[in-house]
Amino acid sequence: MDDHEAVVASSLVQYAELLPRLNAASDAIGDAIRARLRDDGLNHHTVQARVKDPGSVREKLGRLTVAGKPKYGNGIVQLDDLIGVRVIMFLEPDIADVATALKGQFHCREDDDKTSSQRRNGQIGYAGRHLILEVPAENVPVGCQTFVGERFEVQIRTVLQHAWAAFEHDIRYKGGAEANAEVDRAFTMASTLIELADAQFSAINDIVKRRKAESTADFAANPATEITGDILQDMLARLLPEHPRSQARQYGWLGDLLAANSVRTVADAEELFGAADWSAVAKKMDYKFPAGQVRIADDFLLKNWGSEYIARTKSVGNDVKRESKLKYRLERMQD
């Protein structure tokens, strides 16, 4: 057994010992990221967190450079993707907002915007945003207190980009397919179509937002109608056209927040939100990107009712840390 083989073997033994901790860290980091995206009102498809399987670790540690030397000569300490997280978005423009949110939550060691690099260089192929993050020692995300210093990789991409990447990986790597010009051409064509489709999805989203902003909602004719999540989604799309849509289920949760404050009809909500100074809320909160519609609505209600709002809504939903988060946000508004 040569030195490289010995390093790989030793690393795999070490990795087996680390697996229980890595699995726990993966769960905690995944939960923290989901909570952050929910708090910021960022509309996303799914968050997937996983730990690299031992076979993949062995394969990666066995890689050689072009010069024939071990690429990871120091073993698993060089691997930043033992824990991997995928954040799958519906719209490509939202990827940048997610990256900003996560870089504000964790320490960022690397940021590789593959989509921008491809387009700058006139290339077509894999697209997405890759971050290497680390659990920080200060302002530790909820649930990650015992995993300070843990590094992990985050891949942020659209549903279509994810489908392309998963299929390509399955064909080229898992399938063991040899390099083939015909296959390369087909993948290039597919990536071009996916880029066009992502652009069309963003255009469709803009058209829907504009139409809702320009039109008078049907429910306005029945102001006594009780609020529903669908009604709130239409209302905020009209009042906050510059802010991205939140996840559909969050509008129902916003309805529960309003009900806890005796706001139950369309007329009540229209009067309340229609008088809001949204720019003042955004200025006080100093958002790093346009907040999701439900997030800024929640912040407006907090600004409007203060500590009474905290008392009335701290138990609405399943976020056990909501009360402490609201208190922190209220302090920021009062600075």
Results as ranks from 00 to 15, higher is better:
274 G>N: 11
113 D>K: 10
286 D>W: 00
95 I>V: 15
130 H>C: 07
316 V>K: 09
82 L>Y: 07
5 E>M: 09
320 V>K: 14
329 R>M: 08
128 G>D: 06
79 L>T: 04
18 L>C: 01
257 L>I: 05
303 K>F: 08
198 D>E: 12
85 V>I: 15
86 R>E: 06
233 Q>D: 02
77 V>E: 14
1 M>C: 02
117 S>W: 09
13 V>M: 05
149 G>V: 08
42 L>A: 07
68 G>T: 08
165 A>Y: 08
23 N>G: 02
77 V>M: 09
35 A>W: 05
230 D>V: 08
271 E>D: 13
280 A>K: 14
40 D>N: 09
49 A>H: 02
298 D>W: 03
58 R>A: 15
164 W>G: 00
247 Q>E: 08
68 G>W: 10
82 L>A: 07
175 G>H: 09
305 W>T: 03
76 I>P: 01
327 K>S: 05
316 V>R: 06
58 R>C: 08
200 Q>R: 13
45 H>M: 07
270 E>V: 08
116 S>H: 09
247 Q>W: 00
186 A>I: 09
79 L>V: 04
40 D>R: 15
89 M>N: 11
186 A>E: 05
204 I>E: 05
160 L>C: 02
288 K>A: 14
257 L>S: 00
72 Y>S: 08
117 S>L: 10
258 L>N: 02
83 I>G: 01
44 H>W: 05
218 D>W: 04
67 A>K: 13
204 I>N: 09
204 I>S: 07
136 P>V: 07
120 R>T: 06
18 L>H: 04
78 Q>T: 05
98 V>M: 05
185 R>F: 10
196 L>V: 12
209 K>C: 00
83 I>H: 04
240 L>N: 04
